[in-house]
Computed example of a mutant assay.
Amino acid sequence: MPPLAAQAERLIGLGVPAIAGLSAAEVRAFAGSAAAAPAGALLAVHPERAPASALAPLLRREGKEGFVVTDMTDVDLFTPLDGIDLPDSPLYVLADVDRGDAMANWSPDEALPALTAADRTPLLLTEGIHWVLQEPAALARNHCFMTIGSRLRKPKGALDARTPALWISNGTGRDGRERRNAPKVGWCWAGNRHTWLGFASATAREAGVS
């Protein structure tokens, strides 16, 4: 992962502060204040400030723009699972981000308790996008990842069975051939397994490190 100062400049160059209602100076100042964060920390913007629908088109792979699948028009309604407490700050850092390759071919329903037992927290969809914005190589053919920290609640409180993920489009179906090899925000069923999807997680979220 690049140093936090470099990550801040990357977000500024992409126009993320404008999306989040922040100035470039505020992003730089936060990165400076969090400079003592563990090596490899990821800088993220709170999802209420920069939703997935606004961040996904900033992704790039082989010159192709990222996108959200057409049957996920409610992508910004996916919110943190109960038990995931986000810092009360427009910017925060995540420690020890991992793609979860060892859990490939697990279902989300199987992976969540295992991550919790290992004292890890599953990434939110927006956090996963931030990771790929900083490290495009985090998304690779046959090694993509789910972000099961984000889920949609139905009106009566039950969880929608869809779980969001980031992978690479094959350019088939409704994606369109022109999107082949583009970064893609999609979803999978909570009970299904996929050999090419890990479960991205971190050890902690912090509003800043003095």
Score class of each variant (00 low, 15 high):
residue 121 T to S: 11
residue 31 A to S: 13
residue 112 L to E: 14
residue 75 V to G: 07
residue 15 G to F: 07
residue 88 D to W: 01
residue 3 P to C: 04
residue 170 N to M: 05
residue 26 E to P: 01
residue 138 A to Q: 09
residue 3 P to T: 08
residue 78 F to A: 12
residue 143 H to E: 09
residue 45 V to R: 03
residue 106 W to G: 00
residue 194 H to C: 02
residue 114 A to T: 08
residue 141 R to I: 03
residue 208 G to S: 12
residue 106 W to T: 01
residue 74 D to G: 04
residue 44 A to F: 02
residue 77 L to K: 11
residue 66 G to K: 05
residue 103 M to S: 05
residue 182 A to P: 03
residue 95 A to G: 09
residue 74 D to V: 08
residue 109 D to Y: 11
residue 16 V to Y: 00
residue 79 T to Y: 09
residue 109 D to H: 12
residue 153 R to M: 01
residue 169 S to M: 03
residue 58 L to K: 15
residue 152 L to I: 00
residue 207 A to S: 14
residue 11 L to F: 13
residue 190 A to C: 02
residue 87 P to M: 09
residue 122 P to W: 02
residue 34 A to G: 11
residue 23 S to G: 14
residue 168 I to V: 14
residue 54 A to S: 14
residue 135 E to V: 09
residue 90 P to R: 01
residue 29 A to F: 03
residue 182 A to V: 08
residue 173 G to C: 10
residue 72 M to N: 07
residue 116 T to A: 15
residue 32 G to F: 01
residue 59 L to W: 14
residue 159 L to R: 07
residue 195 T to C: 04
residue 11 L to N: 11
residue 81 L to W: 10
residue 92 Y to C: 12
residue 33 S to C: 10
residue 90 P to V: 03
residue 43 L to C: 11
residue 95 A to W: 15
residue 85 D to H: 12
residue 199 F to V: 08
residue 209 V to R: 15
